[in-house]
Design a protein around this nucleic acid. Structure first.
Lengths: 239, 239
DNA sequence: ACCTGAACACCGTTCAAGT
DNA sequence: ACCTGAACACCGTTCAAGT
């Protein structure tokens, strides 16, 4: 049994319990909520403002612009990476784990990887991650210039893959729809004219097998083999 | 006996000199003009319509939506690639040339590479390019599954690099500004606290040396070495 | 110092109406 | 069939005004 509320105590129903004071943290938290639910495209200044019961202009007291906001999201995500210690003997495994971890964290925030493309990360968490990767590679005896460029290339690979993976996951509306889409592409390849596209037709099956993970591992294997091969060459030439 | 001319076939006297009839070709041409001058962000339905002296709604009679338009741009660009014949002995060089060519064509259209990310190309020119790449790899004796996945990974590498390169070229407002930006990043790395970021500080120079091209070649070397290494392993295991 | 409403200059896409 | 104007539901960012 519920008692009637006297008219003088009736309030407009507040959909949100308490309006927290605006802050960079609150803005980032709201941004992550939207990002994780709907993807990066939904993370607009106006949506965030909505989420915080204010107007879009209010955000600009705490964040320079949307680009800086994305950089902050990225650095916060970088802080979620679990970094491991260098190991001379197992540098290849450690490097692989690092790149997997970067990809994992990015995909866990949908298509956040897109925000990492074409940006040199300079936030504290991103720097700590780069530092760890460089340490991993140097411990393995990879030449310094290779370490520097490899850190760049390996991260680019993780980011690009994370973006593709995250977007598929998002727009297909789940893992299953993504698989169905790839299967449909396979069918499309199979029915192409054999005289013009013999290799595509013949390899249609192989082109569309493997989920994101095994394809990711394949590229990772190529890159690390390449690095090891160069490191071996350098050792031979030098010593 | 003359048939009546339907109203829509009657030609209105053209008051302005050069208004071509709308067509997919005219729309694509206008889109490329904007793209090559200002980059992908400027290629909006409304800008294209402006360029063609019409309203944005008119474009939808020729193009399903903006996403299809981007796919068409991409396939037309793929048609600009110069493809080479397979060669068993020189498959590594041929594969490298292919990836360089893909990157070159994309960068020649500013940041068009972005439109290639997270999209499986299905247009005729893109298919012809994929077909050529698969032929190149198979001629070199790369195992079929490796060919299939490598075609994907190598293209992803070219596309991701082209996007970064194209964007730097665009937003820096030219080659020189881009170099200045990288140099500034180098200075930033150098003044970081040595205790927290020893490797970044020490490698600051190496991290920021090399223009886009030599960094691109480095990654390409890693990938092709990796492929060759796998191919050698497969040969050993199998024969 | 922080927040706000209103405005500016844009978007992609739809739809009924025109030729 | 093709094209159009107007509208809808959005954007990022600025700015003068408020507290």
């Amino acid at each position: 049994m519920t008692l009637p509320v006297p008219p003088w105590e009736q309030r407009a129903p507040k959909r949100r319990p308490a309006k927290l004071p605006l802050s960079r943290e609150a803005i980032l938290a709201a941004a992550f909520r939207i990002l994780d639910a709907e993807g990066l495209d939904a993370v607009t200044m106006r949506r965030i403002a909505d989420e915080l019961d204010t107007g879009p202009a209010s955000l600009y007291a705490h964040v320079a612009n949307k680009d800086e906001l994305y950089a902050l999201l990225l650095d916060q995500a970088a802080g979620e990476m679990r970094l491991s210690e260098p190991s001379a003997e197992h540098w290849q495994d450690r490097a692989k784990e690092f790149i997997r971890e970067l990809e994992r964290v990015l995909v866990s925030h949908k298509d956040l990887g897109r925000a990492a493309l074409a940006r040199i990360p300079t936030g504290p968490n991103s720097l700590a991650a780069s530092e760890a990767l460089l340490a991993l590679l140097r411990a393995g005896g990879v030449p310094d210039q290779d370490c520097a460029w490899a850190a760049d290339i390996l991260s680019l690979y993780a980011v690009a893959h994370a973006y593709e993976n995250g977007l598929h996951l998002l727009q297909a509306g789940g893992e299953e729809a993504g698989i169905a889409y790839v299967a449909a592409i396979g069918q499309y390849f199979r029915q192409l004219p054999t005289d013009r596209f013999p290799n595509i037709v013949e390899l249609a099956g192989l082109l569309t097998t493997g989920d994101g993970d095994v394809r990711f591992e394949f590229g990772l294997d190529l890159l690390i083999r390449g690095l090891a091969s160069r490191a071996a060459d350098a050792k031979r030439d030098h010593g």
